[in-house]
Design a protein around this nucleic acid. Structure first.
Lengths: 187, 187
DNA sequence: CATATGATGGCACTTCGTGTCATTAACGGT
DNA sequence: ACCGTTAATGACACGAAGTGCCATCATATG
């Protein structure tokens, strides 16, 4: 068999390795494909650009939209957001703290990746907003709930991966939510 | 005199014109420099990359940091944020609604520009957070105040530029703040 | 065994962005 | 008015990113 299986996975793993060894910008696409046993042209068939190889893995966005759409109809937006954050933390992050920390470290070390990461956050907000509007929320309420939900998730993720002691991400989420409510910003 | 004045301004204007005529990705740097009467090499002396020509103009970030540092010491974070948002709206946006709308339209029409725009938002959050910490806030409170402040500003800017009727941006800011407080998210 | 289909390779090409050195204008001192 | 210094610009080569197009190979299906 000439074609080894899981070409996409091989590319992702090779890229991750090289990025943590020599940094993102010092790594060229030919280096990645060479390690994965493929060619440059094939890389760009799987990933739209060099940055996407870092983000292509799991689409939080789709998961969030689905969770919102399937949430019980009697919950209000705030309850839906809390429910979705807890579900996402459990399904996509729990038990992967080491990997997530390494992943965040690579992203935060390079501005091109921070660019893309920030847009992913914006896209997640937009998708969440749309899903909330589909549940009957007004545009403004949906926008604000989506913004705040993603804000909490982002801050919690950063805290959880940065601090050695923390065990579960859900605890961080609850902590951030509580700090937001008890702060002076909304009174 | 061989060197016409305001090379940077000429490049910015030429780029803006070409971007709205043919779009961002269809415009090449040689096209921009040709219209501005300069060379490609000179373009990259003024702007780190093609995207920066859109953002390089005014640094909201520096203005915000300065405003926070100079705010009266007896204000708490929430009051500082409100004060800064109102000042920024007045000094950098008021009376420029048309330009801002055109600017936002160009950015939102291209993913590379959305990338960079989203990172600028993240950088503004970081700068605001640092300025608040320098005032004596705790890390977590500063993070949340910065996140919420930039959130309000961003949503208000988008609403203000998108809706034809609205006259002052400060009114949008107050509206967003009020909606955030009266929403169910924080109770 | 033949053929259709999908995955991969090869290659030329454009654009972006940088390193390096040459050239030109402006400025200050004498 | 002359000269040397400095800062802005030009010229050119180059590597890396990303795309279009077609060839080639493996696998499934009949």
């Amino acid at each position: 068999m000439r074609w080894a299986p899981d070409a996409r996975g091989r590319l992702e793993r090779a890229a991750l390795e090289l990025f943590s060894e020599q940094g993102f910008s010092a790594t060229t696409v030919p280096q990645i494909t060479s390690r994965a046993g493929l060619t440059t042209r094939t890389f760009f068939r799987y990933f739209a650009d060099k940055r996407e190889v870092i983000f292509g893995g799991t689409s939080i966005q789709d998961a969030a939209s689905t969770l919102i759409a399937e949430a019980p109809a009697n919950l209000d937006s705030a309850q839906v957001i809390r429910h979705v954050l807890a579900s996402l933390a459990a399904s996509h992050f729990e038990g992967q703290k080491e990997q997530m920390a390494a992943w965040r470290a690579i992203i935060n070390s390079n501005n091109e990746l921070r660019d893309r990461d920030a847009r992913k956050r914006a896209d997640l907000i937009l998708a969440t907003r749309t899903a909330l509007i589909n549940r009957g929320e007004t545009a403004l309420a949906a926008t604000l709930a989506a913004e705040v939900g993603v804000l909490v998730f982002q801050v919690a993720l950063e805290e959880w991966t940065a601090q050695p002691g923390l065990r579960s991400m859900e605890a961080s989420i609850e902590r951030i939510f509580a700090a937001l409510q008890s702060g002076s910003l909304f009174r």
